[in-house]
Amino acid sequence: MAQTIVENQVQQERYRHIDVNGRLASLIHLVYALLWWLLFSNNDLMAAPTLWLLGIFVVSLLRIFIVKRARSFKNDVSTPIFGIACSSGLVWAIGILILMPALSGDMRLMLLLMCLALLSSVVFAFTLSRRAINGFCLPPLLALLICLDYSNRLELAAMMVVLFNYSFILLSTRRAMLLLDDNMQRLFRHQAQVEELESSQQKMLFQSQYDQLTRLHNRHHYEEQLEHYWSLCQRANSPLSVILIDVDFFKPFNDAYGHVAGDRCLSEIAALLKRAMIRRHDVLARYGGEEFVIVLPNTDAIGAQTLIQRIQKLIFEAHIQHQYSKVSNQVTVSMGVCCMIPSAQQSARQLVEKADQALYKAKETGRNCFVISGRGEQHEHARTQNRRVN
């Protein structure tokens, strides 16, 4: 699979080269054809060269279109590119067959030398496709061999130079393709390895910070953030609140509905808690089992109570059925809250312990409620309107 991906990337890189170079080569060929038309056509034979020049123009536009669309084709585009290379070569061959017989002396030799430059330009136009290079070069070469005056030693020598140049093009492009393919494959393999490593690192980072089931932060990340915000609030002399949340009668729910339903219930509760959160810097985490924890920096007890009431409302409206609860026909939660202004004489652990004591008191007072523990161990509790209906 990985090898196929690398090969596809190499192929796409080839088409990118053909796209970039092919457009410029098409413009060069148009200018070159116009130069041929000006140099080698004469007043007695103007119609055929003009039609040939028009053919060069059409084929050049078609080639620009093909190479421009090369990377958007789903299938292999080597055949269309080979076809357009053959078409270009045939049009140039027709031009040679039209122009060369009407020339004499030095003009024939000049045309041969200009064919040498024409064949050299194909390396730029179809750098990474030997098949396309052959498709372009062979028709003009055959046309030259047909029109060549074999009794003229200068023409024969010029033709030998053209053939030698063609052989050199084939050898050099083969070597260049092997080197480029090897380098591109190494590059893409390296990129694939880097991407795989980054993906593994991101996965490990996610696993180290998030709970797999609920997709919330895990306890380790929560503890780090709690210490961080404790220090910040201590320096700023601002309140820090912690809310501990416990799903009421979750064990009977798990036993009655099954562990899959239990996991789904925890995931739904986690999603509801996320919806209740407004500020991005607040921390929501899975504390363990069916317990969740929220850290609210720069938040007093009133602000924490506002969030609690929003959580109660969302859970009540979710109507997660729980026929085995002793306080309601649907899933409910109990919450314990503690708010402190951090100081050097206290610790974040004490804040959590007080929130845990408040949660314990909420369970003792009948569950489906919250208890706020403030300074001086003063408690308040409030119960939702969600009661069990027998």
Results as ranks from 00 to 15, higher is better:
317 E>P: 02
274 K>G: 15
336 G>S: 11
349 R>W: 11
254 N>V: 05
241 S>D: 00
389 V>Q: 12
232 L>A: 14
368 N>W: 06
134 N>K: 14
250 F>P: 05
371 V>S: 14
87 S>M: 15
100 M>S: 12
231 S>K: 14
166 Y>G: 01
45 L>G: 05
326 K>R: 13
113 L>A: 11
234 Q>G: 02
234 Q>H: 02
31 V>D: 11
48 A>I: 12
4 T>S: 12
191 Q>K: 13
288 G>C: 06
243 I>Q: 10
249 F>R: 04
93 A>T: 08
60 S>Y: 04
389 V>R: 06
63 R>G: 01
330 Q>D: 15
384 T>R: 09
115 C>W: 04
152 N>R: 11
92 W>M: 14
246 D>M: 04
290 E>P: 00
334 S>A: 11
293 V>S: 04
17 H>C: 13
170 L>M: 15
211 D>K: 03
195 E>F: 04
235 R>V: 07
140 P>T: 06
319 H>Q: 13
20 V>R: 11
186 R>H: 12
99 L>K: 01
204 M>K: 01
321 Q>E: 14
373 S>W: 07
104 S>A: 15
18 I>M: 15
280 R>Q: 13
112 L>G: 07
356 D>R: 08
285 A>F: 02
104 S>W: 10
11 Q>L: 14
145 L>K: 13
258 G>D: 03
208 S>K: 04
113 L>H: 12
246 D>Q: 08
242 V>R: 00
228 H>K: 15
266 L>P: 06
274 K>L: 12
93 A>P: 13
219 R>L: 11
299 T>G: 11
81 I>V: 15
53 L>T: 03
